[in-house]
Every structure is written in structure tokens, then in C-alpha cells.
């Protein structure tokens, strides 16, 4: 009996290894003869230790697992991401050795801050990594603890400015609040903080009523029963917050989507064979359940239906379209 079990285990291990071997063989078939001969550089535009950096480092680790080549992460930080975006758009060579691990902040930079030096059209998205929607949260001992999102928005319409929301100024979290205001006619007092976590703390201390943050930024407080999420700025509810409705669901809208949408982008003009190889390589890493589990641990959501240029491009265009329309309506973009 034991021997059979051992044999079965060995067979399982062997098939697993064979599958990995098979994947490697498939990649090897796609590999251009002259590429890669030097390490691949993943450019992350935010500092080491943050969510983007971690995403990049995980991807590098799993890319190395699925193909025998060196992948390094380079943090080109500064200017709230602008320095790295600038680098990727104007300096990085389209030779397949520099890949950008970027997020939708690239679009905002392109639309609002690049001043025509470059646009998001100078990039080609090649793989979608994961997404993480922003949420609204209230303290469970605060004045809004029993109010549904719809009611809170109604109140903010009746008494403009009486409800205070902690936002990260100039960032998607501020856009989310403005978007809600724009669509519902409500008016909130937006108090700027340096990030989601400080805003959550201010909500805990009763200095503001609502905090806007990613779930990773206050998961501990949710588990401790001190904070609760009241709205999710994504397409669907989050598995860890089954009771929190999406904004669109609660308010009857459809364009409130504010999330970190992370993907790999390359400078335009990479030779087609290298592009194809890189795409297959990154997707081999992304199909790895271990990597997906690592992403999930950080609170990010994986969606493996978005694979291949013909799937990613329309989604990118749709999201950029929504953002652009919003910037035009609020007068940020003329």
C-alpha cells in the first residue's frame, strides 16, 4: 500500500515537473535566437517596499522560475512616479530588455502631467497583472456605523460638507470622492492625507468620518472589528468583504471604477518575435497558482481572462476613456 502511495506521489511529482518542463520547452520554442542575452530589467516607478515594488519583485521571481534567465527589478522613483514614467516613455530602448511594471497612474500622468512630452500611446501593454479597487471605510463606533452608502450620500447632499472624507490628494482616492459628488450631487469635505493608512487612522480617531483606502491598508482593523468597508470602487464585490456593495450597485451608477490596475507595459516598437516571447513568458509566470496566491495575499485580485493584446487593449482603452471623461467633466483636462 505504502509503496503504491509512494509511486503515486512520485508520478504526481513527475507530472508536475514534466508540466513545468513542457512549459519551458514551449517558451524555448518561442525564444528568438538573439534574445535574451542579458538580464531583463523590470522598471518599477515607486519606491522599494510598496505595493507596486512587491508586485514587480514577485513577477521577477516567478519569471525566473519559468525560464532560465535573469530578471532584475530597478526602482526609478521620484516625482510621484513621474520620473519613472518619463524614463520608460522617452529613454528606455524598445529592445525588450526594459519592461515597465506600471499601473493606471501612468494614464493619469499621461493625461494630466506629461505636458505633451509623451502619452500613454507610446506604450504597449503586454500583460495584465492584477487589480485592487479602492474602498470607503467607516469606524464601527463612529456616527456612520449603521448607515448604508446610499444614505450617507443622500445625507451629504442634504447637508453639504458636513461629512468629512480622508483622501490622498491628487490621487485616485480624491478622484473617487469627486466622481461620487459629480454623479450624485452630494458634497463632502475632502481632507487630504499622505496615504490611505493615515486616513484610516484619522477615521478611527474620529477626526474624519470616512477613509478611502485599499483593503490591505486596513485589513487588520477590519479583522479587529474596528473598521468596516461600506463601498467598493470596482466592478464586483470583494471576496474578503462580501457585505460591502460596489458603488455602482449602491448608487445605481456604472462609471465609478477607481482601482489600482497593474500591468506590464513595454516601450512601443519592440521586435515582434521578442514581444511574443516576453508575452508568453510573463503569462507562464502569471498562470502559476503560487504567484496568484502571493498576489491574493496582498489583497490584489487576479483575473486571468484578460490575456493577449486583443483582450487587454480594449479594457485599457475603456478604463482610460472613463478616466479621460471624468477629467474633462471636472475641468482637469481641457
Amino acid at each position: 500500500m505504502k509503496r503504491h502511495l509512494l509511486a503515486a506521489c512520485a508520478a504526481l511529482v513527475w507530472t508536475g515537473a514534466a508540466l513545468a518542463q513542457d512549459g519551458k520547452a514551449k517558451l524555448a520554442a518561442l525564444k528568438p535566437a538573439d534574445f535574451p542575452t542579458q538580464p531583463i530589467e523590470l522598471t518599477v516607478v515607486y519606491p522599494a517596499g510598496g505595493g507596486m515594488d512587491y508586485t514587480g519583485r514577485l513577477l521577477a521571481k516567478f519569471m525566473e522560475k519559468h525560464f532560465d534567465a535573469k530578471v532584475i527589478v530597478n526602482n526609478r522613483t521620484g516625482g510621484a512616479g513621474m520620473i519613472g514614467h518619463n524614463y520608460l516613455a522617452t529613454q528606455a530602448k524598445p529592445d525588450g530588455y526594459t519592461l515597465g511594471v506600471v499601473a493606471n497612474t501612468l494614464w493619469a500622468d499621461s493625461l494630466l502631467r506629461a505636458n505633451g512630452r509623451w502619452t500613454y500611446k507610446d506604450f504597449e501593454p503586454i500583460a495584465f497583472l492584477n487589480y485592487d479597487p479602492l474602498t470607503w471605510a467607516v469606524a464601527t463606533d463612529g456616527p456612520l456605523k449603521d448607515k448604508p452608502l446610499k444614505q450617507i450620500v443622500e445625507d451629504a447632499k442634504a447637508k453639504p460638507g458636513a461629512t468629512r472624507v480622508a483622501v490622498l490628494a491628487g490621487n485616485t482616492s480624491e478622484m473617487l470622492v469627486e466622481n461620487v459628488e459629480l454623479l450624485t450631487g452630494a458634497k463632502f469635505t475632502k481632507v487630504p492625507f499622505q496615504g490611505g493608512a493615515p486616513g484610516i487612522t484619522a477615521a478611527l480617531g474620529g477626526h474624519v468620518e470616512i477613509g478611502v483606502a485599499f483593503t490591505t491598508e486596513y485589513r487588520g482593523h477590519i479583522e479587529a472589528g474596528k473598521m468596516k468597508a461600506i463601498g467598493v470602487a470596482g466592478d464586483k464585490r470583494l471576496p474578503i468583504l462580501p457585505d460591502a456593495p460596489t458603488f455602482n450597485e449602491a448608487l445605481g451608477t456604472k462609471e465609478i471604477l477607481w482601482q489600482a490596475w497593474r500591468y506590464v507595459s513595454v516601450p512601443k516598437g519592440i521586435p515582434a518575435d521578442r514581444r511574443k516571447f516576453l508575452e508568453a513568458w510573463i503569462n507562464a509566470a502569471l498562470d502559476d497558482p503560487e504567484l496568484q496566491e502571493e498576489f491574493r495575499k496582498t489583497g490584489a485580485l487576479v483575473d486571468r481572462s484578460l490575456v493577449g493584446e486583443n483582450k487587454i487593449m480594449p479594457e485599457v482603452d475603456r478604463l482610460i476613456g472613463l478616466e479621460k471623461a471624468f477629467y474633462e467633466k471636472t475641468g482637469r483636462l481641457k
Partner: peptide, 30 residues
């Protein structure tokens, strides 16, 4: 609180999260 008060503790927070641990009121319990 899971709240970094300066850049160095912000990096430490990153290190906790990378380890799959969320610093906060529940950390002492969990």
C-alpha cells in the same frame, strides 16, 4: 495601528505585508 510615522517604519510596514502579516490592532492576537 499599522501606521508608519516615518519613511523607515513605512518600509518596515512593507516588510510585514510582504510576509503576509498586517500590522494592526489584531496582530498581537493573531
Amino acid at each position: 495601528l499599522g501606521l508608519p510615522s516615518n519613511a523607515v517604519t513605512a518600509l518596515l510596514l512593507g516588510a510585514f505585508i510582504i510576509q503576509g502579516v498586517q500590522p494592526g490592532p489584531m496582530m498581537m492576537v493573531q
